[in-house]
Design a protein around this nucleic acid. Sequence first.
DNA 1: TACAGTTGGTCCGGTACCGCACACAGGCCC
DNA 2: GGGCCTGTGTGCGGTACCGGACCAACTGTA
Lengths: 254, 254
Amino acid sequence: MVAFRQGGNAVPNSFCVHAMLDQSTVSNRLLAHLSRDDFALLAPCLTPLDLYRDYVLAIPNTPIGDVYFIESGMVSVVAEKADGRSIEVGIYGRDGFGPGTVLLGSEQTPHHHYMQIGGTGFKLSTKDFLQVTGKSAPLRTVMMRFIHVFMTQTAQSALVNGSSVIEERLARWVLMCRDRLETDEFPITHDFLSMMLGVRRSSVTDAIHLLEGDALIKATRGNIRILDRVRLERAAGASYGVPEAEFRRLIGPL
Amino acid sequence: MVAFRQGGNAVPNSFCVHAMLDQSTVSNRLLAHLSRDDFALLAPCLTPLDLYRDYVLAIPNTPIGDVYFIESGMVSVVAEKADGRSIEVGIYGRDGFGPGTVLLGSEQTPHHHYMQIGGTGFKLSTKDFLQVTGKSAPLRTVMMRFIHVFMTQTAQSALVNGSSVIEERLARWVLMCRDRLETDEFPITHDFLSMMLGVRRSSVTDAIHLLEGDALIKATRGNIRILDRVRLERAAGASYGVPEAEFRRLIGPL
DNA sequence: TACAGTTGGTCCGGTACCGCACACAGGCCC
DNA sequence: GGGCCTGTGTGCGGTACCGGACCAACTGTA
């Protein structure tokens, strides 16, 4: 779980919970890259919580009450068509926060945000988040830059959905997941992947077999393990890398 | 062209060009929806210019010198893969400005921005833009909200690229184009459309024939005319409408 | 140990779209 | 007029992926 030191007594007041958090122990990249002062501004508002699988961070077209910083696990951002078909337009984990739209002047998002892979994180109320970001321009800039990176990721999804075969898109997804989880192995079913990629479940099975055939990954029931990261990147081809490079350029190492 | 009154002499100084512009005559929706004061802040920095077809507003991964507000015509935002394949991730016209990334703390964008259909607009230097948006929170909010809408559009592109047939996607594109041009007829070739949609040129021809067969559009050499807007929306199905609704909710009527 | 629920492997016919190629038509310049 | 470029119509074989179904294998609970 998360490092968490109480300063005095952790009583919520009208504005923030006075919980003292040690910046050197957080694994969220945005929080870690904040200046000491900016972190001190934000930390008292953060409430650590367990983000179990399927935990809902945001419901489409519904006021966003809380903003989340992820420490571990992974969030899927999913767009849904009126006819019921849906597809993942982006993911974030310890590299970011969400839903970012609150910083763009929209108290709603048209997308689902939910934990695809369980983990932990912090939450703070939208109100507190806007108040704190309103106080510090550098802090706001870090958050904005993440939004830019996330937008790039969404654009990349649009690109590969329209121009890459499933095998490549799967390789991309696995790599993106790895980047955010720090592990080579994570729980995921073919069924979920089929929703993420917007394809048929058995097409995912086929694509997994292709990657397994090249000894890039090893799939077991409800689980995928990466065997050869470098060659997996090669398999993803031009699908993978653009938003990741933007992250490093603007924020820092993943 | 664009209504343009000079106040005194239009000499550039170190900060802004002092050109007086009448808010009631601009057709850009963002500029039109600004408060009188915010408009007065921005207007002196705006230089009107002709945005001819293929005019480049932004080159990928290159510092953005100028920001543009579109008065007429249409911009394509295109993502390109390392293997050369590219696809449109969004469009904007008199509904917006670009490249929005400068407001998100990135002086670059990974995407191409260029005039797909020629028109007119205003430009101002990135420096001026940031200075002005730094002065007024309400003005910044309007710009941010447009970025949110554009992000929604990109996400919608990801969704339909992965889950809709070409005919539907073409119908969506034509409708989006119409929304931004105020005309039912506009110049576009099958070849360009094939790049936008990320499909084969002859697949576009086929899709056009399908829509023509239902008397929804009429295509002539290098030109498309909308015959029945309502039924065209029906043909686009669930592909069309989400970002448009966000625009109306957050900014105002198109 | 039996059962139920979940997950994965596989097979079917069907089709949307691909890559490529070639012919033809509209509009322009000499 | 003749030549030329750009844009459009069309055809052919190939394939990636679809929708749907069924069964086998694994896993948790009784």
